[in-house]
């Protein structure tokens, strides 16, 4: 039996493999450190946005507190490395597990709220996390933690000058989140979650357990966001509450997914590829003026996309396909 759904899924998987392979080749001809850094950050946000998309897109639960999972992920793997010498290759799973559990803990009370009320609750949770870490001496409080350099190593993901290993670590992160989203899309869970997003009452009447669906989506989303945090901490080598737990991070994680297209496989990646370079480039060329021109351009772009394509940039691809189908 062959039909639209199976064909589409196969096509998406093939496209996914091609895109990931292309992203693996991309940095090879680029020697410039600045550009390589830009690619790494773009990949990081693509992965984080996909992690957010699993909860916010597929399950429709708009979280504006994802900085807490990102930040806690940073701290868990860094503390394991600094205090116990456990390298990030293992630490990132611990970070993911802690953040997945944390997402369940947050979800337990918060999923009793829905829609905007849920979103507001997550903002509060994010702020609580930030303030907690800011005043907690064990984790360095406001001073933060330096990640000591212990020699070049893949396990600890530490390299003196090379950027390429970080590129591949982030790419593996993007691949993991993308494949997770692809698998979810085709599974019973994915169908249940989308049903919950579109109409929870109808979903319930068909036997979908709404609360459990939200919790599962939150746990997976939290897991991957924590993993992203662990990788980021190792890349930058220094974390403090302001750089990993601030509320703006929650927005930055969600934005590529929203701009690219929520609840779609490609939206987060496309959104990150457009947004992150624009924000970085406008900051480096215009940011010094002290008048915030870079942020105006950045904000203007978001407004433009929101007005012209509220379904996200990914819908531009759909337009062409639909025109093609009509012609056929």
């Amino acid at each position: 039996m062959d039909n639209d759904i199976l064909r589409r899924r196969r096509r998406e998987l093939i496209t996914g493999v091609i895109v990931l392979a292309a992203l693996a080749m991309l940095p090879l001809p680029i020697a410039d450190v600045y550009t390589r850094n830009l690619l790494i950050i773009t990949l990081l946000y693509a992965g984080l946005a996909q992690a957010w998309n699993i909860l916010g897109g597929y399950c429709g639960q708009i979280s504006l507190g994802h900085a807490i999972y990102f930040g806690v992920g940073c701290y868990v793997s860094t503390l394991l490395y600094v205090r116990l010498g456990i390298p990030v290759a293992f630490g990132l799973f611990a970070a993911g597990a802690v953040c997945g559990a944390l997402a369940l803990l947050v979800g337990w009370p918060c999923f009793r709220l829905s829609g905007h009320y849920y979103a507001v609750a997550t903002v509060v949770v994010g702020e609580i996390g930030y303030l907690l870490f800011l005043n907690w001496d064990f984790v360095g409080a406001a001073t933060g933690i330096y990640v000591p350099f212990k020699g070049e190593s893949w396990l600890a993901l530490q390299f003196r000058t090379q950027k390429l290993p970080y590129h591949y670590a982030m790419l593996a992160f993007v691949a993991a989140t993308w494949i997770a989203a692809w698998v979810i899309e085709g599974s019973r869970w994915g169908f249940s979650w989308r049903a919950v997003r579109d109409d929870a009452v109808a979903a319930r009447s068909l036997g979908v357990r709404v609360f459990a669906s939200k919790m599962a989506a939150a746990a997976i989303s939290g897991f991957f966001t924590g993993v992203g945090g662990a990788l980021f901490a190792q890349y930058v080598g220094y974390i403090d509450p302001d750089s990993v737990l601030a509320g703006t991070f929650s927005i930055l994680i969600a934005l590529p997914a929203v701009l690219g297209g929520v609840g779609t496989l490609w939206g987060p990646l496309i959104g990150a590829v457009v947004l992150i370079p624009v924000s970085e480039l406008s900051r480096s060329y215009l940011g010094g003026s002290g008048r915030g021109v870079d942020l105006m351009i950045y904000g203007g772009l978001i407004v433009l996309v929101a007005l012209a394509r509220p379904q996200g940039l990914v819908s531009l691809l759909g337009l062409r396909r639909r025109a093609h189908e009509n012609a056929a």
């Binding site: 039909n3 169908f191 249940s192 989308r194 109808a202 068909l206 036997g207 979908v208």
Partner: peptide
């Protein structure tokens, strides 16, 4: 009440998933 972001077939699949994974 329909799941408007999904196709007709996908809508019905949500129901069918009540009996199979």
């Amino acid at each position: 009440r329909s799941f408007d972001s999904m196709t007709v077939l996908e809508n019905v699949m949500v129901g069918a998933f009540a009996r199979t994974a």
